[in-house]
Amino acid sequence: MAVLPRRAVMLGVGILGAGGIAERAMVEPARGVDGVGVVAIGARDPERARAFADRLDLPAWGDYDAVLADPRVDLVYLALPPVVHAEWATRALAAGKHVLCEKPLSANGTTAAAIADAADAAGRRAFVGFHYRLHGFIAGLLDTIGSGVLGEVKLVEIDFSIPHFVVQPGNIRLDGDLAGGAVMDVGCYAVDLMRAAWGELEVVSATAQISDADPRIDLQTDAELRLPGGIPALLRASFLGDDAGAMWVRVDGSAASLWATSVIVPQWGATLTVTSTDGSVLRSVAADPDENSYARQLEHLVTVLGDGSPSILDARRGVGTMRVVDEIYRAAGLQPR
């Protein structure tokens, strides 16, 4: 692994995993965030890491262990399948690094709790990469839900469906050995959002459309949940969406209804509309397309690691999301990952 002088950054990031998400979620946004620098990339095949580093002009490369041993690395970003998050998060924390796990936090609630426990034991911090939560549009969405403008909430519906042509055979999201599945991939966002807006959830029922190639994989899951106060919520997580896909949330209340789009990635044209029961538009908002949720996530991490303040991305909170994911799978007749 190449050894270069430490860059003048407040937060040096080392990445484990040389896939596309590492470039999109970390390398590109880090270049626009003050105080953050990607200082090392690691892959199972060091030559793949070298190719990644050469293409994106990163200063160091090697295998996973080389990244963990690099003294310039303050935070390790796990751009790996969730089934190995617990192993590598634990090792990174023991090496004195903070950890950001690409969502979901881990394969299941048990291994997610192991990450949170390891962070406590090491005196370091672990986070889950629900980047969307740091976007200003989502802050506005949650503020609107909590403002009372909707009146008494009667029903919540969320559909996060990936277009049917995106997740094709060979994709890791279709591999049961790697903790794949629709709820794991996009359903976890819906669970996280509902917990942020209303609190803890109860899973009432679920049904899953199973992959013929791997019976552990849900291509689509529809779940009925109950929010605090007995509010019903319907969730769809799917790899079988139409050509446009779906990332929408609807909240029906006694006084008004809320409709929000592109919730998972607000910079992709998210909109929020609140309509009263008489049909008048009370609020209409569009997300700023120049605001990047991944950049906001990095800014947030610089702040909370600098001053020790709480984070909405803390792994301990993320454990609860994974436990709901587990319960959805059990309700659908599947085993947690």
Results as ranks from 00 to 15, higher is better:
residue 316 R to N: 10
residue 58 L to K: 00
residue 90 T to Y: 03
residue 181 G to A: 12
residue 100 L to G: 02
residue 54 D to P: 05
residue 100 L to K: 04
residue 182 A to R: 00
residue 193 L to W: 02
residue 304 V to D: 01
residue 180 G to R: 02
residue 71 P to E: 08
residue 204 V to T: 13
residue 198 W to H: 08
residue 149 V to K: 13
residue 177 D to V: 15
residue 199 G to N: 08
residue 257 S to F: 10
residue 300 H to R: 12
residue 155 L to K: 10
residue 21 I to V: 15
residue 329 Y to C: 06
residue 101 C to P: 00
residue 152 E to W: 08
residue 174 L to F: 05
residue 16 L to I: 10
residue 189 Y to L: 14
residue 161 S to M: 14
residue 315 A to H: 01
residue 116 A to M: 07
residue 161 S to W: 02
residue 5 P to E: 06
residue 114 A to P: 07
residue 208 A to V: 02
residue 108 N to E: 08
residue 251 V to Q: 10
residue 316 R to S: 12
residue 90 T to V: 09
residue 65 D to P: 10
residue 179 A to L: 00
residue 5 P to D: 10
residue 285 V to K: 11
residue 97 K to I: 02
residue 227 L to E: 09
residue 145 I to V: 13
residue 287 A to N: 08
residue 308 G to Q: 09
residue 309 S to P: 07
residue 208 A to W: 00
residue 306 G to A: 05
residue 10 M to E: 15
residue 192 D to K: 10
residue 124 R to L: 06
residue 43 A to E: 07
residue 25 A to G: 11
residue 201 L to F: 04
residue 122 A to R: 11
residue 92 A to H: 01
residue 197 A to F: 06
residue 201 L to T: 00
residue 240 L to F: 09
residue 240 L to V: 06
residue 129 G to N: 04
residue 270 A to H: 11
residue 235 L to T: 02
residue 96 G to F: 11
residue 122 A to Q: 14
residue 219 L to P: 00
residue 46 P to G: 13
residue 258 L to S: 01
residue 115 I to M: 10
residue 256 A to W: 02
residue 275 T to L: 06
residue 246 A to E: 15
residue 94 A to N: 05
residue 186 V to Y: 06
residue 332 A to S: 10
residue 319 V to T: 05
residue 39 V to K: 00
residue 28 E to I: 14
residue 176 G to F: 03
residue 20 G to P: 09
residue 21 I to R: 12
residue 185 D to W: 09
residue 83 V to M: 14
residue 102 E to V: 04
residue 127 F to Q: 00
residue 63 D to R: 07
residue 291 E to Y: 06
residue 167 V to L: 07
residue 50 R to S: 01
residue 279 G to T: 05
residue 289 P to K: 15
residue 298 L to S: 01
residue 134 L to R: 13
residue 302 V to F: 04
residue 12 G to M: 05
residue 137 F to C: 01
residue 126 A to S: 01
residue 261 T to F: 03
residue 261 T to P: 04
residue 317 R to T: 11
residue 211 S to I: 06
residue 80 L to S: 05
residue 187 G to D: 02
residue 269 G to N: 13
residue 136 G to S: 11
residue 9 V to K: 02
residue 175 D to N: 09
residue 253 G to L: 08
residue 289 P to A: 12
residue 15 I to D: 00
residue 292 N to W: 08
residue 330 R to Q: 10
residue 212 D to S: 15
residue 276 S to K: 14
residue 306 G to Y: 09
residue 191 V to C: 05
residue 246 A to M: 15
residue 231 I to G: 04
residue 76 V to L: 07
residue 334 L to V: 11
residue 276 S to G: 15
residue 194 M to A: 13
residue 123 G to F: 12
residue 268 W to T: 15
residue 155 L to A: 13
residue 12 G to S: 09
residue 259 W to L: 15
residue 305 L to V: 04
residue 213 A to W: 04
residue 194 M to Q: 12
residue 222 D to G: 11
residue 271 T to D: 14
residue 225 L to E: 08
